[in-house]
Design a protein around this nucleic acid. Structure first.
Length: 432
RNA sequence: GUGGGUAUAGUUCAGUGGCAGAACGCCAGACUGUGGCUCUGGAUGUCGUGGGUUCGACCCCCACUACCCACCCCA
């Protein structure tokens, strides 16, 4: 017997009925995005490795150890091979497309969203996969289009709160921070390093390591004993320059005004280098250690880092795998039932053909219909209908053909009515 | 990349150094026109993979792989 081939580590199949849940989230997101005037962009699954090295940052974990990268072979001897990478995130690709198609030249603010798979070579665990799915949106453009305005930050955050409300996720918290501009962060990093030099010996092993490699990460430490020390460290807010501080204040003011609850979390640091000023994260309990449902922030310098024009922007990415987990944890209502609405039961010999005609007519009327096999046992039909999740069962047998009256029965209530053939579709359309 | 746990029927899981089990599900019959009940019968497995110990291994030992949880990282 041939060896069985299995899905590779960190990848998985999403099967029905879960796919219905995924479609529900995707549809809800598209719907909300359109209401906020975002339009879909689709960028390639793989890109030039340099895009991520320069965009996300050479030193980040994502780029330094989590990318699926390979050398594409050269087409001709005179040509060099090209290093390609499966996208580990989508913001860099969107900004690359923005630059490549000179979208900034319209003078318009570009409001774009995407839905698709991303790839990171991490060790899999709950809510974390090597091929995972993100829904994200980006608002970017020339400063003259208002792309730098704190109103954009607040709009994106409002839109997300709206989306969460729409799909029925209630147990979320919004963490908000400002990481300032590049120069602010450099000064802050320096200050942290100096402050840690004196105290790091008293901290956990992880923190001692972080203090050397990436002092910002110390702020993320959850070890209880370290907390007093962390509290005493300098705060990022003390290192924001005036424009950055004003920007952040304005974002908070708008959020207060529209009634969105948030916690300023000065210890929230993001792992992608391109973030500037506003950063945020929506978290959810019930996701285990991977509590970040969605996260995002501003990236005012990204376009220029990728060789493009000045194009400040803000965006977010939502982890669809985790989002679905959170939905399931909430036992949310409002998930569409994709089961057939009516099961057609051919009863008796030679009824398959009759049943097929009726099924065709119902399907033409957009009524989800499952067509059963003919049998002499009504019980079998009921069982098959039940299994398929149908709401109604319609018997098609000799008696019905002879009398022109078809018995339509609601499975749950047992209620039954007799209908003429042409009345069936109408009846099914008017009942929910 | 590191640590811990798990791997037995379609599913959830028991189990013992000596014949492979239960529940649910599935199939058939009782039962060829109105179910969800009941009764009877049935099928299902390289006991994750590869080695080792042993007269004998699903069980003990080693390695590997996968999954789960956590660290890390992030969405």
């Amino acid at each position: 017997m041939a060896a069985v081939i299995k899905s590779v580590r960190g990848t998985r199949d999403i099967l029905p009925p879960d796919t219905a849940l995924w479609q529900f989230v995707e549809q809800a997101a598209r719907d909300i995005f359109h209401r906020y005037d975002f339009q879909e962009i689709r960028t390639p699954i793989f890109e030039d490795t340099q895009l991520f090295a320069r965009g996300v940052g050479e030193e980040t974990d994502i780029v330094s150890k989590e990318m699926f990268t390979w050398e594409d072979r050269a087409r001709a001897q005179s040509e060099k091979s090209q290093s390609l990478t499966l996208r580990p995130e989508n913001t860099a690709g969107v900004v690359r497309a923005y630059i490549e198609h000179k979208m900034g030249d319209t003078g318009k603010l570009q409001k774009l969203y995407y839905i698709g798979p991303q790839f990171r070579r991490e060790r899999p665990q709950k809510g974390r996969y090597r091929q995972f799915y993100q829904i994200g949106a980006e608002a970017l453009g020339p400063p003259s289009a208002g792309s730098e305005s704190p109103a954009r930050d607040a709009e994106i955050i409002s839109m997300l709160a709206h989306l969460l409300r729409e799909v029925g996720i209630k147990e979320w918290t919004l963490q908000l921070n400002s990481v300032g501009c590049a120069s602010d962060r450099a000064r802050y990093n320096q200050a942290l390093r100096e402050a840690l030099a004196g105290v790091k010996d008293e901290m956990c092993a992880d923190c001692q390591r972080r203090a050397e490699i990436n002092p910002l990460r110390v702020l993320d430490c959850k070890v209880p004993e370290d907390q007093p020390i962390i509290e005493s460290l300098p705060k990022i807010s003390e290192y924001l320059d005036d424009p950055c501080r004003e920007h952040f204040n304005e974002v908070k003011k708008i959020l207060n005004h529209v009634g969105i609850r948030y916690q300023v979390n000065e210890r929230m640091v993001r792992g992608l280098d391109y973030y500037t000023r506003t950063t945020f994260e929506f978290t959810h309990g019930g996701l285990g250690a991977q509590s970040a449902l969605l996260g995002g922030g501003r990236y005012d310098g990204l376009s220029e880092a990728l060789g493009g024009p000045k194009a400040p922007g803000i965006g977010f990415a939502l982890g669809l795998d985790r989002f679905v987990l959170a939905l399931q944890a909430e036992e949310t209502v409002g998930i569409p039932d994709l089961s057939p609405r009516v099961y057609i039961a051919p009863l008796g010999q030679g009824m398959n053909a009759e049943a097929a005609v009726i099924a065709r007519d119902l399907r033409k009327q957009h009524i989800p219909t499952e067509l059963g096999d003919e049998t002499f046992r009504a019980k079998k039909s009921f069982e098959a209908a039940e299994r398929g999740g149908a709401k109604y069962i319609l018997f098609v047998g000799e008696n019905e053909i002879a009398s022109g009256q078809f018995a339509l029965k609601e499975l749950k209530t047992g209620e039954q009515i007799a209908l003429k053939r042409e009345e069936i579709a109408l009846k099914l359309k008017t009942t929910t």
